[in-house]
Design a protein around this nucleic acid. Sequence first.
DNA 1: GATGAATGAGAATTCATTCAT
DNA 2: TATGAATGAATTCTCATTCAT
Lengths: 202, 202, 202, 202
Amino acid sequence: MTRPRAEETDGRRAKGERRRRAIIDAALRVVAREGVGAVSHRNIAREADVPPASIAYYFDGIDDLLVAALMEGCEGLIAQLDQLHEQVRERADWPRAIAENLAGVLRDHRERTLGEYELYLLAARRPALRPAARRWIEAASGYVNGGRGGDGPAIRALFAAIDGILMQGLIADEPPTADDLEPVLRFLVQPVDYLRDRGYLD
Amino acid sequence: MTRPRAEETDGRRAKGERRRRAIIDAALRVVAREGVGAVSHRNIAREADVPPASIAYYFDGIDDLLVAALMEGCEGLIAQLDQLHEQVRERADWPRAIAENLAGVLRDHRERTLGEYELYLLAARRPALRPAARRWIEAASGYVNGGRGGDGPAIRALFAAIDGILMQGLIADEPPTADDLEPVLRFLVQPVDYLRDRGYLD
Amino acid sequence: MTRPRAEETDGRRAKGERRRRAIIDAALRVVAREGVGAVSHRNIAREADVPPASIAYYFDGIDDLLVAALMEGCEGLIAQLDQLHEQVRERADWPRAIAENLAGVLRDHRERTLGEYELYLLAARRPALRPAARRWIEAASGYVNGGRGGDGPAIRALFAAIDGILMQGLIADEPPTADDLEPVLRFLVQPVDYLRDRGYLD
Amino acid sequence: MTRPRAEETDGRRAKGERRRRAIIDAALRVVAREGVGAVSHRNIAREADVPPASIAYYFDGIDDLLVAALMEGCEGLIAQLDQLHEQVRERADWPRAIAENLAGVLRDHRERTLGEYELYLLAARRPALRPAARRWIEAASGYVNGGRGGDGPAIRALFAAIDGILMQGLIADEPPTADDLEPVLRFLVQPVDYLRDRGYLD
DNA sequence: GATGAATGAGAATTCATTCAT
DNA sequence: TATGAATGAATTCTCATTCAT
C-alpha cells in the first residue's frame, strides 16, 4: 500500500487550510460591515465566494466559526497593539499618543472596531465564545499595562476607560478627535500633573 | 404611525396604548433574556401574549419597535439613576457607593444590563436608534456629572470607565465585587487622595 | 367595535381547517406510496399542492403531523372495521369472512396497510406517537373482540396473529389468498372444530 | 462489488473484509439505537469510526449496505434461535418456555428487535431487501416449526402470532411479562389442553 | 381596529455522492 | 486502495410581512 507522498497530503491539507482561513476572514469582514446579526452561512459564503455547504464542512456550527473569527481577530488586535506599543514607547507624551491612537481607530477602523465589540458582547451570551473573549481581554489588558508593573487599580481604570471611550465613540455621530481625548487620557495616565496644571493642587 | 389627538382618547384608544406598552415591555424582556438577535415578531408576540400580526400593526417594523424599547428602557434607566443619586448623595464615601452600585447591577441585573448594552451597540449600526441611544448617553452622563459642574475630562474619564467596567463585568466569568471595584473608583473620583494613600505623593 | 359576524370567522376557520385536513390526507398518501421515510415538508406540500411553509404553519413539526395522520388514519381504520364487522356478522362462517377480508386488504390496499404499519412501528421510537398508536391498537383490539366477551388469551392470540399475518403478507412476494389464510383463521377462531376435522381429537 | 477470488485473500484483502464487517455491525447498531431513518453514510461512519467515503467505497449505496446488514442480522437471529431451541427442547413446558423467551427479548433486547422489525418492514418497500427478508422469515419459520413436521396452519398461526406479539410489545408502554404471554402461547401451542382447562371442552 | 391565514425567503444543518490524489 | 475535500440538493424550521375579513 503506497502511502501518499508528504507533499501530496500537504497539498490537500494546505488547500483546505487556506479555504478555512478565507472563510474566517470573510466572517470578520461580514461582522465588520453588517454586524454579528448578519453572520449566516449564506452571507459568509457569498463574501468568501465559496458554496454555502463549505461553511458547514469547515466549521461545526456558527458558534464554532465565531470562535475562530474571534481568535483570528485577536491575533490581528495583538499585532496592532504591538505596533502601537512601539509608537508609544518612542514618545515621551503617552497620553497624546494613546489619544491619537484611539481617535485614529475610531476614524479609520470604525466598522472593524464595532464588529469586534459586538463579538466581545456576544461572548457574554454564548459560553463557547468566552475563552476567545478572555484571550482578547488579556491581550488588551497586557497592552494597557504596557509591560511595566503599574498600579493595579489605576491600570484597570485606564483599561476600562479606553473600552468606554471606544464604545461611546462608536455610538456618537461624530467620533472624538485626538484633541478631545487627550485631556481625558492625561487625567487617567498622569492625574497629578493633570490636576496641578488645572490648579486643583496647591 | 399617527398618534391620535388627545380628545380622541377614549377606552378603545387607551386599550391600544396599553397593548403597545405591553409589546415594548415584552421586547425588553426578550432582549434581556435572549439578546437582540432573538428579537422577532414571533418571539415578542409570544412573550407579550398577543397575536404576531399585532406587532406589525402597532410598529412599522422591528427597528421602530427597538427605538420604542430603547426609549422606554431609557426611562427605566433614568429612574434607576435618580434613585442611585439619592443614595449616593447621602453618603460621604462616593467611590464606595458607586462601586457597590455597579457590583450590584452586575450581580442582580446582569441580563437586563447586557440587553441594554446590546441595544446600545446596535445603535451604532442603525441610524434610527441613534436618537434614542443619545438620550441614553445623556441621561447617564448627567448622572455621572451629578448635577454639579465638575471638571469635564475627569467626568468623561469616569463615565467612560463605568461603561468599560460594566462591559468587562458582563463578559467576565465571575462579576467583580464592590471590593474589587472600590479602589478603581477611588482612583477615578479622588485621584489625589488615592495616590497619597498609596504613597505616590510626597 | 364591530365583532366580525360569526359566518365570517367561521369562513376563515373553516378554510384553514379544510387545508389542515388536506395536508393530513396528503401525508397519509405519501406514507402509503413512499413510506414514512419520505415524509417531509416538501413531499407533502407537493402532494397536497400547497406551499411548503403551510405545513410548518399548520403543524408544530413533522411529529405533530404524523400524530395527526395516525389519528386520522385511525378513524379510517375504525370505519373500515365497522364495515367489516357488519359483513362478518351476517355470515355464519367467521374464519372464512376474516380470511377473505385480510386477503382483500393485502391485495387491494397493500400500500396503505404498509404505511399504517410503518406509522405503527414508528410509534415505538417516538413517544409523541404513542397515544395515537394506542388508540389504533384499542380500535383494532375492539374489532377483534367483536363486542362479545370472548376468552382473553384466545382473543389476544387472534389479534396478534392477524397483525403477524398482515405484516408477513406485506413482505411476501405474492400476498396470500383467502384460501391460504382460511385454515389458519379456522385454527385460531374455532380450534376444536379445526382439530376435530383434522382428526387430532378423538 | 466484485468479490475477490479466494487466492487473492492476503492481508490487505482480509483487512478490507474486516472493515466491511465493521461497517455492517455499525449499521446494525445504528438501526437498533436510532432506527432505519437514521441510517446514513455519516452516522454509520461515525459509529464505525471510519471515514464516510469508505462506506461509499465498500457498498454501492445505502440499500446495498442494508441488504448486507439484514443478512448479517439474520445470522445473528439464527444463532439466537438455535440457542433458544436448545433451551426449549429440554423443557416439557413449551408454551412457558416460549413466553419467557419472548418476554425476555422484549425486555432485554427491545431496541435490537425494534430495529430488526424496521428492517423487515423496509423490505416490503425495497425489492433489493426482499431476498434477505425472505431468508429471515424462513429462519424464523423453521424455528417455529422446530424441525419436526407439525400441522401447517397451526404453525403458521403460531408464527404469525409471535410476530404480532413482538410488534405489539414493542409499541406498548410496558412490555408484557412471561406471565402475560403464557396463556396466549398455551392457547396457540396446546389448544385442546388450554380449552379443557378452561372448561370449554366437556 | 385588529387578526387569523398565508407565504416567499432564508436560517442551520445533513445528505449521498464525486473526485483528485 | 482508500480517503480528505468538496458540493448541490435536501432537510426542518423561523422570519417579516401582506391581506382578506
